[in-house]
Amino acid sequence: MIAREPVTAYVAVGANLGDALQTVLSSMAALDPLPGSCGSQRSRLYRTAPFEAHGPDFINAVVRLETRLSAPDLLDALQALETQAGRLRPYPNAPRTLDLDLLMYGHARMDSPRLTLPHPRLWERAFVVHPLADLAPELVTPADWARVAGQSIQVITHS
């Protein structure tokens, strides 16, 4: 279902299997042409160790997207992109070819078995807080920075 007015949504993008950098870049590019969506903006790219998991380092970013899709329809579109990238879910926090998390959908608050908004662990993870601050520094408070202060994160450059 297409929402009437555009809503600003924030999507976390991460990968740590295969060519993670290329997967993250490709998936960010794939968000803009989603039905009813436009005007995406991208954070810088970051490298982080897996959080509460094992495996290779992650490449992470956040995308701000203007969308007319409803939150559940946007989630469906994100999960379809994950599937196209070969995402498997063998166990919680498993390494992944692509992870797309809907962090915020305007000012929506939702708590269903399928979707919780804002994302319930949004403010606990440096790999989300840092790239989100690239796009919307006004959303990140000193308390948010303090919660992620001990987590290792590195800005990366690519060509």
Rank of each mutant, 00 (worst) to 15 (best):
R64S: 15
S26L: 13
P72I: 08
H54P: 00
A85P: 04
A29D: 15
R64Y: 00
N60H: 05
Y91C: 00
R44A: 15
A61H: 04
G39Y: 00
T48P: 10
A94F: 07
T23W: 09
P50L: 11
P95Q: 09
D19F: 11
L69Y: 03
Y46G: 04
L78A: 05
A20F: 10
Q41C: 09
R42F: 14
G39T: 03
L65T: 00
Q79H: 15
Q41I: 01
L75A: 09
A49P: 01
P92Q: 04
L69Q: 14
S27H: 12
R44N: 11
L74T: 03
T83E: 13
S70F: 00
A80R: 14
A80E: 12
N93T: 06
L69D: 02
G36R: 02
L78Q: 09
P35W: 03
S40R: 13
A29G: 11
P56R: 14
M28Y: 03
F58G: 08
E66F: 00
L75R: 04
S70E: 14
R96M: 06
D19K: 11
P35G: 02
S43D: 12
L81I: 07
S26T: 14
R64G: 01
Q84F: 02
V62T: 03
G86L: 06
A29I: 04
D101F: 09
Q84S: 12
S26H: 14
S37P: 04
Q79I: 02
A53I: 08
L45R: 05
A53C: 04
V24E: 13
G39L: 01
P72T: 07
M28N: 03
Y46T: 11
A85M: 09
G55I: 12
P95V: 08
A71Y: 02
D76T: 13
E66Y: 00
A77W: 03
F58M: 10
Y91K: 07
N93Y: 07
R44W: 13
G39W: 01
P56D: 15
A53G: 10
S70I: 00
I59T: 14
A61V: 03
V62I: 05
T48E: 12
P35C: 03
S37C: 10
A30G: 09
Y91T: 05
R89C: 05
A71D: 10
A71V: 09
T48C: 11
S37T: 04
T67Q: 00
H54D: 07
Q79D: 02
P56H: 14
G39D: 12
A29Q: 15
D101C: 06
V62S: 03
A30N: 11
L78G: 11
L81V: 07
D57H: 09
A77S: 14
A80Y: 04
G39E: 04
P50A: 09
T67C: 01
P56Y: 01
P90W: 05
A49G: 10
N93G: 02
S26Y: 01
R89M: 03
L65E: 02
A61C: 06
T83F: 11
I59K: 10
L81E: 05
G55R: 07
G39F: 01
P33D: 04
